[in-house]
Write a protein that binds this DNA or RNA. Sequence first.
DNA 1: CAGGATACTGAACACTGTTCAGTAATTCAA
DNA 2: TTGAATTACTGAACAGTGTTCAGTATCCTG
Lengths: 204, 204
Amino acid sequence: MGVAERRAREKDDLKKKILNAAAELFVEEGFENVSMRKIADRIEYAPSTIYLHFRDKVDLVGSLCTTTFAELDQRLQEIQDLGLAPLETLRKSLRAYIDFGLEHPSHYAFVFCTPSSVFKAMAPEGQEQLWGCGMGSFERLRVGMGLCMDTGAIRRADVETVSQATWLMMHGITTGLIFEADFPFIDRETLIEHSLDRMLDSLR
Amino acid sequence: MGVAERRAREKDDLKKKILNAAAELFVEEGFENVSMRKIADRIEYAPSTIYLHFRDKVDLVGSLCTTTFAELDQRLQEIQDLGLAPLETLRKSLRAYIDFGLEHPSHYAFVFCTPSSVFKAMAPEGQEQLWGCGMGSFERLRVGMGLCMDTGAIRRADVETVSQATWLMMHGITTGLIFEADFPFIDRETLIEHSLDRMLDSLR
DNA sequence: CAGGATACTGAACACTGTTCAGTAATTCAA
DNA sequence: TTGAATTACTGAACAGTGTTCAGTATCCTG
């Protein structure tokens, strides 16, 4: 009775094929320029077939981003597992976050620079997954921040306030460097490291 | 021979009418949901008429944003004219910037969260104007920063580096609060003031 | 009043996301 | 080996988008 299994596998294969094609187009041309027809063309199926596997375009791209952001979570986990001093772990995590965003500008921009109204149309489960992914990463920041305070690496303050402000700044660096590519920024490495220095210094 | 003048005035009136209608729709529904047909409907003209006054949609919205961002520049000028201590001027300016962004989320998002490729299609003059507007504001930040160093209000450092990093952080606060409206942020006022405190403290 | 400039329009083109009736292929039961 | 039923997939259509352009209607000038 392996028929059902094979069928399910084939179904899943096509879903992955769609996601792959979409991912390619997404990084090649950005969200705005990805169309269902282009995706369908690339995998040689009719556009309507995609709708048998995804509720709509946002659901598809959202699913794509969930997968990619899981990678960020993994990277943060790995850094945490290194067992470094809390402040060092925190700094490496912040840096990893920024680097991740710059490596996946389309994904980052879609998740954080799309009006929330767009996501409201997503399937609740997909919405939950994407949201949970982001919240998981923020949770890591908050915990790391608390640890730094507990060990006296930074001065004691309201963890929530400090974490949120830190995320906002970090987000600004990422978003700014993604979209303002034409701005005459100084050397990117210098700019990021300087910003991190200041963000962490202000916590001491 | 006032005919030409009257005609020019009428032409300009219609242009303003278009801009007004677009501005309304822009704040009501955001960039994505503004369509040329909706604008045309609102002013009771055919969609094609708009193209007699604007090269394309980006040109129209860009023109809109240029006007709005001129207001920011004016606010910053006013703050500068108050003749306060350099550090106080700087802080008030940063705060004004954030407030401006939060008051005009659609404009801010369009200017800073739109792929630069989109602007490349704009008329060179409009592009120049919008760019100049943003650069003007940044110039103000840089000058203010330099003044703070000269008077010893903050420690001496590379003005360009410090200004760019500061803008990125400020931009993060603005963008983050605009798009992540669903995130359970703490009290907005507290969050902004705390962030400004830290940004400036790290410069002392 | 004729002729020319100007303002404006309607229809079309090529695209978009999305839906759904209908077809083709595959599997299962008799 | 058939017939029925489930499943997979498609083609055409709908309503929307930005944009173009031939053609009309209005106005101003000589």
